[in-house]
Design a protein around this nucleic acid. Structure first.
Lengths: 332, 332
DNA sequence: TCTCACAGCTAGCACGTGCAAGTGGCCGTG
DNA sequence: CACGGCCACTTGCACGTGCTAGCTGTGAGA
């Protein structure tokens, strides 16, 4: 179909084929309003571009306009990938409508892979979690100036993703089922320590607000019987409900309780966080917190666009759709 | 530190700062062997480039040399993300040594997000699974000519990733534990139907090779009690061991068996596939197949480099490190 | 008929890079 | 001393695009 064999179709090809200048073609294809182009010419150009299968050369555009229109999302190496894809999909979609594209990279702290910001020069780098100072200086050294979150001198929201609601819902759910003394199942995985701290703090806050005593914190992984020990501690302390940092921790608690001959939820009710796909497969099935990943994706996209173009933030939080998914592990 | 304020450092800046021509700087930075450059000048250039913090402009390079040196890996929307990151990390590393960079995108068949190959114009697009004809023509329309796998007119390996060993190991593991009549737990998830077929075929082949009767195939999801029905069918048919398509299917089978008052593995032994992190958390813990994701990543990288540069394939398969992880669900 | 505004188009530069072709100086040889 | 060869470097083009400044033709007004 192409007039030239195997070569890329450029705007010059379209122009030549119509006997017009390349500039005219450029004006039409960019929809420039500075320059008036007659309707007839505009149509001819568009038709011919479509016929030849013209695609703008991204590298040339990036070079000329000095911006790649790329947004890089750094995904931490958390074991929550199953749901991140929803979030990314939604963020991509929102960004596309603004003419930007989203590229993701999973960031391994110990990994040796070169970060993509070195060679895509994205306009904005977005992360789920704040970046380390090292990462920030590395990015700045590569010309990345817009980093979200992590550069605001006076951050209005300490938690840029606004995910406080999950732990609160966990606590309130257990309390509604009659559990007053609660435990918190933490992980020793250092990759997510910040997230654990954040969720624990939110849970403690919710407990205090509900007039409950502070949660008894135990780590449920790391050593072979950490979970068993935690369960024993909790039961001795009359803890009847456990808020788990995530579904993995919840599964560990439940497994240890069953192996200790206890019944879940009769002896110990457990609720996880993130609503991993396998929570429904467990016996007993695990209650959890479903996060609105689509909303989170839109929120991330908005933050990125705000950084890129100064577009104002819509302001509606992302917590709205966070909800408890009640299953057997907290049945009353 | 920069001589100019806030602007990108170009090769011309380095040249000007040294009183040399831009070409000389270019030759040094590219390590061109065509053109001899004195050792002294070379050192001066490198030192000055480092001092000024010079970074080549990727878009300009891509424009000039006509290739982006990017390789796009399309990750299917399978629920196996947890381990893909290992694979990607390793592939990135291998590709970097060859001067290429890896960008990944999760591909949602129903998603509306624009595929990245439209705007990164990657040199090669690699996929875990063969692409659909639609995708292939879309890529070709965007100038992507090198697609792996899926373009070989006479494919020597029907399974480009060479993952036949897993199902064979599952069958042999159950057989070694004394199970002769086996079932196969499939999923109705259409996204992975090709993978299911492939694993089932490999399992049937292994059964035949071991002199076992064909596996009794049942789907264990889709309807609420599909797994319960499957378990009932198997037990009635004297099936004592189940090869599951993946760990999710295995978990469904085990859950259904327990809820039916059966014991796993005494009444029914089950082995999963992929060694998902949660297999160890189940009660009983789930035996599974660990795949060498690092090796798979290197293999993918090799395939990509082969397509990009014609570099020969090393030939050693990726199956070598595939292994059974024996847990409670198949204990004898 | 001449002028002038203006719609509609074109010439051409700049972006930063990779590399082919050219240029000047130095040295060895006849 | 002339000349060729070679080293070390420079000039300059091309990649495809976005966009500014300029150019041409037409019609209206004087």
């Amino acid at each position: 179909m192409g007039t030239k064999a195997g070569k890329r179709v450029t705007a010059a090809d379209v122009a030549r084929s119509l006997g017009l200048s390349r500039a005219t073609v450029g004006f039409v294809l960019n929809g420039t309003t500075e320059q008036r182009i007659s309707e007839a010419t505009r149509d001819r150009v568009l038709a011919e571009a479509a016929r030849l299968g013209y695609r703008p050369h991204t590298a040339a555009q990036a070079l000329r306009r000095g911006s790649s229109r790329l947004i890089l999302l750094i995904i931490p190496d958390w074991p929550v990938d199953f749901s991140v894809s929803k979030c990314v999909e939604e963020a991509s979609h929102t960004l596309e409508e603004a003419g930007y594209s989203l590229v993701t990279q999973t960031h391994h702290p110990v990994g040796t892979a070169r970060p993509l910001w070195e060679l895509l020069d994205p306009e904005v780098v977005v992360g789920f979690a704040p970046f380390t100072p090292d990462d920030v200086t590395a990015m700045q050294g590569c010309g990345v100036t817009k980093i979200v979150p992590g550069l605001e001198p006076n951050p209005s929201t300490p938690d840029p993703l606004g995910l406080h609601d999950g732990p609160r819902l966990q606590v309130e759910h257990l309390r509604a089922r009659g559990h007053e003394r609660l435990g918190f199942a933490a992980t020793s995985d250092s990759r997510v320590s910040g997230l654990v701290e954040s969720r624990l703090a939110a849970a403690q806050e919710a407990a205090a607000a509900s007039g409950l005593p502070p949660l008894v914190v135990r780590t449920v992984d790391g050593s072979p019987d950490a979970a068993g020990q935690a369960v024993q501690d909790w039961l001795r302390g009359d803890v009847t409900g456990v808020v788990a940092y995530n579904d993995d921790s919840a599964a560990r608690v439940i497994g240890a309780a069953i192996r200790a001959g206890r019944d879940v939820p009769a002896d110990l009710a457990v609720i996880g966080h993130d609503d991993s796909p396998y929570t429904a497969l467990f016996v007993p099935s695990i209650s959890s917190i479903r996060i609105d990943y689509a909303g989170l994706g839109r929120h991330l996209a908005e933050l990125a666009l705000h950084a890129a173009t100064g577009q104002p933030l819509s302001g509606d939080g992302v917590d709205a759709a966070t909800a408890v998914v009640a299953r057997e592990s907290t049945a009353s």
